[in-house]
Design a protein around this nucleic acid. Structure first.
Lengths: 230, 230
DNA sequence: GCCATGGTCAAGTAATCTATTGATTACTGC
DNA sequence: GCAGTAATCAATAGATTACTTGACCATGGC
C-alpha cells in the first residue's frame, strides 16, 4: 500500500530530525555544546568543568557525535571534541532566542541571578566593533587562556577573570574597558566589570559572547599573541 | 559556597534550554511542528494526519506547549494549536540545515525515496519570485485547501494534489507551472509535477515550501480568494 | 436539563534514558 | 615489553518518557 510506505518514510524522516532534537534534550549536553562553541576541548576537561564523571561525559559526547553535532580528533592520549558545523551554533542560538522570548521561567531565573543587568549598560556587538576600530576601548577576554588561544575577538587581550585582580597594574586608569566571555549567560565578564569598576576603571561588558561574535562574521584571531583589530 | 550556587544556577539555566530540546526530541512532535508551520490546526486533525490516538496527540501537544513552542485558542468545541513564535520556524530550519549537511542517513533516505530529484530541476525561491512578478509562471498550491486559506504564496491558486487530476482543464497547456507544498520533504508538489508533466504541461516544483517562503519575508496572502502577487 | 463531540486527565505498562561502577582499549614514554 | 594516562565499553539500577485505556471536563444544539 502506498500510504503505508509513505508513513514509513515520514517516520524515518522525522526520526532523523529527532536524532538532533534528542541530542539537545539534556542540560549537560547543551552545556557541553556551549563550551565547545568556545573552541575544542578534551573529554576530561569538559567532564571536570561541568562536574560529570569521565565515563558519563564520554557517553554524552557520543550522543552528540551520533547526532553529528560534534566531531573528534585524536592527538596522542587526548581526544579533542569540537563542533562539527557552524550550523550547530545557529541551532544553539535559535534555542536561546526562543527561550528568551517565550520562557518566563528563564527570564525570572536570569533576573534573580544577575539582578538588573541593564543598569550596567552592556555594549552590543556593533557598538563594540565601532569603538574598537577607533581605539576608544580596550577589549578584555575574560575566559580561560586556552579559550582565548582557540579564538578571540580581534584586538582583545587575554585577562582571565581569575587573574584580573593581580594584573590590574597592566590596565591604565585612563582607558575604557569592555569585557567579554562565553556568552550572555556567562558571569566572567560581569565579575570582571565589577572588579574593574571597584578599582576606578570605566568598564562595561559585551552583551553577547565570543561565539555570537564569531557567528556574526566579525573579525577574530587565534593564537596567544594579540591580534590587531581592523 | 559560591561555586555551589553557581553550579545550581547553571543547572537551572541549561534545564530551561533543555525544555525546548526535549520538546524537539520526538519524531511525532517534530511532525506536528511542521504541520503547524502551515497554519493552525485542531488536535483531532493533527492526530488523524499523523496517525496518533487523540489522547496521545493531545499529550504531545502539551509537551510542546509547556516548552512554549505552541499556543492555543479555543473556538467552540475546537482547540486550535499554532506556533507560538516565528522563532520556532527558525529553530526548525536550523535542525533541517544541520541534518541535511551532517546526517548521511538522511541524505540516503531522501535519495531512496525521491530518486534523483535534481533531474526535475526544482525552482529556488528567488527565481520563483522573479518569474511570478513577470507573469511567466502559474503558482500552484498543492496543499489541502485549509492550509491554503491559512496562508499561501501571493498569487498562487489552490489546487490540492488530490483534486489536480479532475481540475486539469482549468490549467491551460501554454503556461508554465510551479507547484509548491509544505516543504522540501513533502511529496505533494512532486506528485503534482508528475501529473502535470504526464498531461503535457511544463511544470517544476519549488525547492522549498510555504513555511520557508514565509520565513524569508516574501509576499503571502491569507484567505480563499487568490491574492495578486506584487 | 440531556446528549454528542472535542479535548484533557489519570493510571498503568513497556520502552528508553541517565549515571554509576568496573573492565577494557588506545596510546605514550620508558 | 611494562607502566601510566585518556577515553571508551558493558552492565546495571533508578528515573523519565511514550502510548493505551477509560474516565472526566467543556462547549453547543436540542
Amino acid at each position: 500500500m502506498a500510504t503505508d510506505a509513505h508513513r514509513e518514510f515520514k517516520n524515518r524522516l522525522y526520526g532523523q530530525f529527532a536524532r538532533i532534537g534528542k541530542a539537545l534534550s539534556s542540560p549537560h549536553r547543551l552545556e557541553m555544546l556551549e563550551l565547545l562553541a568556545q573552541g575544542e576541548r578534551t573529554v576530561d576537561s569538559l567532564a571536570e568543568e561541568i562536574g560529570l564523571s569521565l565515563a558519563n561525559a564520554s557517553q554524552h559526547l557520543q550522543v552528540l557525535r551520533q547526532a553529528a553535532l560534534v566531531d573528534t580528533r585524536r592527538d596522542g592520549l587526548f581526544v579533542h571534541y569540537r563542533l562539527a558545523d557552524p550550523g550547530v551554533c545557529d541551532l544553539y542560538h535559535a534555542i536561546h532566542s526562543v527561550a528568551e522570548r517565550r520562557l518566563g521561567d528563564l527570564e525570572r531565573l536570569v533576573r534573580e541571578h544577575f539582578g538588573d543587568r541593564a543598569g550596567a549598560e552592556p555594549v552590543p556587538m556593533d557598538e563594540l566593533l565601532a569603538r574598537a576600530r577607533s581605539g576608544r576601548a580596550v577589549i578584555l577576554d575574560t575566559r580561560p587562556v586556552g579559550e582565548y588561544a582557540a579564538g578571540h575577538i580581534a584586538g582583545a587581550i587575554s585577562v582571565p577573570v581569575d587573574d584580573l585582580q593581580r594584573r590590574l597594574r597592566e590596565l591604565p586608569r585612563d582607558r575604557k574597558y569592555v569585557a567579554y566571555c562565553r556568552g550572555p549567560y556567562c558571569v566572567y565578564a560581569d565579575r570582571a566589570v565589577e572588579i574593574l569598576r571597584g578599582k576606578g576603571r570605566q568598564a562595561r561588558r559585551l552583551l553577547e559572547g565570543f561565539p555570537e561574535w564569531q557567528a556574526a562574521g566579525l573579525p577574530i584571531h587565534t593564537g596567544l599573541e594579540r591580534g590587531a583589530i581592523r
